[in-house]
């Protein structure tokens, strides 16, 4: 019998990961999706007008919508790359030895974390020039590029927090051990600390990527022709038939679900794996 006084009064709390769609077979999802998205439009279709069925109309537009979706993904890749690069720097700034650097980095991180993504997107859209002159050469700033910049700002702030949190979570013994081996601070950071942090940062970073991907549709509000904009245009081209709304928006939802759900599952698996290792 072991003696132990400080029994945990509560079990450790970990935000519960959503269960997988346990027991859902692929056909379940297909049936539910069809019911949800197309069921309502059957009501309109009964009007008896010999128009193409909503499903057939959608099929015509699928290639274009897919192109738009790929554009969304391209925006997400670039914004993620840019935001991660900037965010890592900002995160390192937050753990800098210089008080001023820490303060400024902390403020920038909080500022861009507290601002709504859509407002930051507007900010980038309206306040960046449409071209810049560099040594007499004018480099155009197209809308999609501004959207990438605008979306990378919140990514940057969130990556900064992820980096700071991961470095903080390492036991201080690592720093002390490295110091006693005469590593410089920079060496300690790049050779000892950050490599260990990568594993801890990966799950929240992927989570952030998923959020960013879903945020790329915001670019439609500021006029970038990504999947949402194209959907609107397709609906307009079809004469704004109300029974088309559900299939078209439903299709966009499915596109994102098909992309983001596997990422979410994979993130959960990674988290579990790392939890066991640690």
């Amino acid at each position: 019998m072991s003696y132990k006084t400080d029994l945990p009064v509560m079990k450790p709390f970990k935000p519960r990961e959503p269960e997988p769609l346990l027991g859902f077979r692929p056909w379940h999802i297909v049936v539910i999706a069809l019911l949800v998205f197309f069921g309502p439009s059957l009501a309109f279709a009964q009007a008896g007008v010999p128009l193409l069925t909503p499903f057939a109309v959608l099929l015509d537009w699928v290639p274009l919508l897919l192109q738009g979706f790929i554009f969304n993904l391209a925006i997400s890749f670039l914004a993620m790359a840019l935001g991660t690069a900037l965010g890592t720097l900002l995160g390192l700034g937050q753990i800098s030895l210089s008080r001023a650097t820490r303060g400024v980095s902390w403020f920038l991180t909080q500022f861009f974390r507290n601002a709504p993504w859509l407002v930051l997107l507007f900010f980038a859209m309206f306040l960046l020039p449409f071209e810049i002159n560099l040594l007499g050469v004018s480099i155009p700033f197209p809308d999609w590029f501004k959207a990438i910049l605008g979306l990378s700002l919140p990514v940057m702030a969130n990556v900064s927090e992820i980096v700071r949190g991961a470095v903080r979570s390492l036991p201080s013994g690592q720093w002390e051990a490295a110091e006693s081996l005469a590593y410089s601070r920079r060496q300690t950071l790049w050779l000892i600390i950050l490599p260990q942090c990568v594993k801890r940062m990966l799950p929240p970073w992927m989570n952030l990527y998923s959020i960013l991907t879903m945020a790329t549709v915001l670019a439609s509000i500021v006029g970038v022709s990504e999947v949402m904009t194209l959907t609107g245009q397709a609906l307009a081209a079809e004469g704004g038939r109300p029974e088309l709304l559900a299939p078209f928006y439903g299709f966009v939802l499915l596109l994102f679900f098909a992309y983001c759900y596997p990422i979410a599952r994979f993130t959960v698996r990674l988290e579990r794996k790392f939890a066991v290792i640690n």
């Binding site: 959503p18 769609l21 346990l22 027991g23 859902f24 379940h28 945020a215 549709v217 939802l253 979410a264």
Partner: peptide, 19 residues
């Protein structure tokens, strides 16, 4: 349980704007 899980997954993994 399935319907609740389906709801959670659908709303977590699609853009709120499209919703």
């Amino acid at each position: 349980r399935r319907i609740v899980n389906g709801y959670i997954q659908l709303f977590r993994n699609t853009p709120p704007l499209v919703q």
